[in-house]
Structures are given as structure tokens and as C-alpha cells.
Nucleic acid binder design. Structure first.
Lengths: 132, 132
DNA sequence: CGTAAATTCTGTAGTCGCTACAGGATCAAG
DNA sequence: CTTGATCCTGTAGCGACTACAGAATTTACG
């Protein structure tokens, strides 16, 4: 096994990453250019499928493609465990900030919306708040 | 007052919206094209400043430019209070979804990071999790 | 009054992470 | 042998800006 017998479509089905996205990852150097058939179609093996899964998992967890690039060791060298931890905790910090920002937003908006009469006039308390 | 005596730079300082962004809003029809000096420089008045503040407030609250367009009544007509409420509560719903997604992410990532030894080897538990 | 610095102008291209074509070639199934 | 599925490259679009380049004008200072 681990032969190059996966077409891009099969790889896409297997990993849940769209064909265009796979090609995009190749273009930006996140996935290596795989071997091709005589007619020029890409062929992937198990290792490349694993790598694509890694990227997908990273994206699901909200890492940027640059983060993933670093985690994969594509920048200069394989990152140490400490570096991986650093990238991850910076990312978690960002997520926490985003959550607290969104919570603030939600509170503000809920308050604003409460003042609304919901009737059919254009005389709206929400709009007034936005204007002040 | 309410004369057209604000240069774009002053408007920018007053509202905290960058000059390029103001011009961008004009280009996409969110701000009207203001009168100009003889040499072609834009001049704004108080009403336009208010409108720009409205847009900025809307953005701060996370509304999309399309939402703001609708709130301003640029689509077809001024929205009724009920329509404004609808836009707002849809938006709040989106924010709540985002918050819960991010919380899930945060929990997962914190768990993943806990397995990390933080040492100087490349043998990393975080990476392993991402690969599985 | 002269000049240097600040401001403004238009237009284009870049950001991120894809997605959606167009227009053609090739492959697999019936 | 034909039809339809899959694949190829290349380009343009999304949202909401941001960042230039290169020119013109205005303001401030000596």
C-alpha cells in the first residue's frame, strides 16, 4: 500500500477537502506537487492524504494557513514541541479575545434590540441608538 | 452650521474612519459622493459626518456592510422598525452561534495543549493529535 | 514670496482562504 | 462509440478594507 493510486477526486472524498482547495494548497506550497499520470492528472498516496487531513484538522481548529505551515515545519525546519505549544497558546489567546469581544457585542445588541417596538413605522429605537 | 467645510482628513479624524475607507464607502455607494472644491477635493457637512458615524457604529457592532445598507434604507426604501429588529436579531443569532463555536474550539485546543511537554524535541503531542 | 511638507486625488493591487467559473482534455461505463 | 464524469489550467470573485504609486494642490514656515 501507500502507492500513488488516489486521484484528486478520491482524495477529496476521503478527506472532505474540496478539489479546488487541494489544488490551492498545492499552489501556495502547503501540499507538495504530487506525481502525475501520463496525461497530467495528479496522483496521491497515503502520506499525502495524512498530510491533507492534518491541514484540515488544523483549519477546523481555527489555525491560519501560516500557522499550519509552521506546524508542518515548512518555514525553515520542524518546530520543537515548545514552539508548537507557543503557536497553539497564542491561538487560544486569540480565540478567548474573540469570544469576549463577541460577548460584549451580544450584550450591547440585545440591550439595543429590547428598546425596539417592532411595529411598522420607520421610527426605530435601534436606528436611533446607532445614530448616537 | 452644517456647511460643507470638512475635508476628508478632518472627517477621518472626527469619526475615526480612515480616509481610504471613507473613499471606499463612497465607491460602493454607502456614502454619497459629496460636493468638491474647485480642485476636486471632497467636502463634507455634519449630516454626512453623522451618516459615517452610523456606519462606523454598525461595523463596531459587527453588522455587515450589506446589513448597514439595509438599515440606512439604501436598498429600496427605509426599513420599518420590524425589519430593523429582524436584521438585528438575525445578527445576534449569528453572534451567538459564533460564540458557541469558538467555545468548543477553545475547549478542544486547551485539552490538546495540556498533553504537550513543552520541551525542545520535535516529538509533540499536539502535532500527534492533529495527525489523528 | 518661496519652498518644503502635508494633504488629497485616482487607480490598481494586495490581504485571507477559498470558491466559481470557462474552456478544453481525458477517462470510464454502457 | 458515445455520453457523461472527471480532470486540467487560468482567471476572477467574495468582504472589507489596506497599501501603495505618482501626481496635484494646499498649508505652514522662514
Amino acid at each position: 500500500m501507500d502507492q500513488f493510486n488516489l486521484t484528486i477526486g478520491k482524495l477529496s472524498d476521503q478527506t472532505g477537502v474540496k478539489i479546488e482547495t487541494i489544488r490551492y494548497y498545492e499552489k501556495i506550497g502547503l501540499m507538495p506537487a504530487p506525481p502525475r499520470t501520463e496525461s497530467g492528472r495528479r496522483l496521491y498516496d497515503g502520506a499525502l492524504a495524512d498530510r491533507l487531513c492534518f491541514i484540515r484538522r488544523g483549519r477546523e481548529l481555527g489555525f491560519s494557513l501560516d500557522d499550519i505551515r509552521a506546524l508542518l515545519g515548512l518555514e525553515d525546519r520542524k518546530p520543537t514541541c515548545a514552539e508548537v505549544f507557543e503557536i497553539t497558546s497564542t491561538h487560544v489567546e486569540m480565540i478567548r479575545t474573540k469570544i469576549s469581544d463577541l460577548k460584549k457585542l451580544e450584550r450591547t445588541l440585545s440591550t439595543v434590540a429590547k428598546g425596539c417596538s417592532r411595529n411598522r413605522t420607520p421610527d426605530c429605537a435601534i436606528i436611533k441608538t446607532l445614530f448616537s
